Simulated scan of single mutants.
Amino acid sequence: MEYLNLDAQVGDLSGVLEPARYLDHLPSISGDLPPGARAFATDTDHYDFQSRRCVKDLTPRAVRSAGGEEIEVEFQHNCWKHDHDLVIRYTGVSSFIIDPTDEDRGAGLGTVILDEILPHRDGCSHEIACWGGTLTIVCRDLQAIWTEADCSSKW
């Protein structure tokens, strides 16, 4: 992450997630982002930890090739926070990297901590930090689609 701090210090408390530096920088770079990436990055709910449309605590569920240079990443809701799932469609993908923090773990990336979308010569880069690793996609543009989730778990 270039601007997001995933291990900020606030008083005596460490390990605090702090998007302020990125949010302060976002207005100066948003015009350089492709339209879909700009809409997703600048959505007021995106970094609002209390919002049902904040990416924090979503879980990557599936990655699918949509043919050619298109990839879809599906994120599952967390019923305590979200009422929608998220699918991000990436077009013109020039780079796709999954970097697990522990290669032997095999448990997937875990839940999303935060993400950062930046301009790139190929369009934009989208880095998604999760508890178990990082997913980084460079693409021409992306489209974020929120779909209603089924939170009727049977306890």
Rank of each mutant, 00 (worst) to 15 (best):
I71G: 04
R38S: 05
Y90S: 13
W80T: 11
K81F: 08
I113Q: 15
R121V: 09
L142G: 01
G67Q: 10
V10I: 06
L33P: 00
W155F: 10
D115Q: 07
C124Y: 03
H84F: 14
V112G: 06
R61C: 12
K81P: 07
H77Q: 14
G123H: 02
V55W: 15
P19I: 03
G108N: 04
G15E: 03
V87A: 14
R89Q: 12
D45N: 13
R89A: 09
W80F: 12
D102E: 11
A37T: 00
G36Q: 01
F75D: 01
P35S: 07
T101G: 11
S30Y: 00
S95M: 13
C54M: 11
A39E: 04
D83C: 07
G133L: 04
L13F: 07
C79K: 13
T136C: 07
L135G: 03
H46F: 07
Y3Q: 04
H77M: 11
L17Q: 07
P19C: 02
L13Y: 06
W80A: 12
I97C: 05
K81T: 08
C151P: 05
G36E: 00
G92D: 11
S95Q: 14
E127V: 13
R140M: 09
H25Y: 03
N5A: 00
V87F: 12
I113H: 14
V16Y: 00
M1H: 03
H84W: 15
R89T: 12
R140V: 03
S152G: 12
H120R: 05
L86A: 13
A129R: 06
S51Y: 14
A41M: 06
Y22E: 00
G108C: 06
K56Y: 15
I145K: 08
P19S: 04
W146G: 03
D115N: 09
F49T: 10
I117A: 05
E148D: 15
A149E: 13
D43Q: 08
L13P: 01
A66D: 15
S94H: 07
H126W: 09
K81E: 09
A39W: 00
G106W: 10
A129Y: 06
Y90R: 10
S51N: 14
D12W: 03
S95G: 12
L23S: 02
D12M: 08
Q76N: 14
P34C: 05
I97N: 08
P19Y: 01
I145A: 11
E127G: 07
P119S: 05
W131C: 11
D83L: 08
A39D: 06
G36A: 03
T42C: 05
T101H: 10
D141G: 05
L23F: 01
D83P: 06
Q76A: 15
A107W: 13
Q50H: 15
S94N: 08
D115T: 08
T42I: 05
L23R: 02
D85E: 09
G92N: 11
K81R: 13
L109F: 08
G11V: 00
P27L: 05
V93I: 12
A39F: 01
L26K: 00
D99G: 10
G31L: 10
I145G: 04
T91F: 02
V138H: 06
L109M: 10
T101P: 02
C130Q: 06
C151D: 15
G15T: 07
F40W: 14
S30R: 05
C54S: 14
Q9I: 06
A149Y: 08
L135H: 02
P100Y: 06
Y90P: 10
D7P: 00
Q76L: 15
S28H: 12
L33Y: 02
L4W: 00
R105L: 13
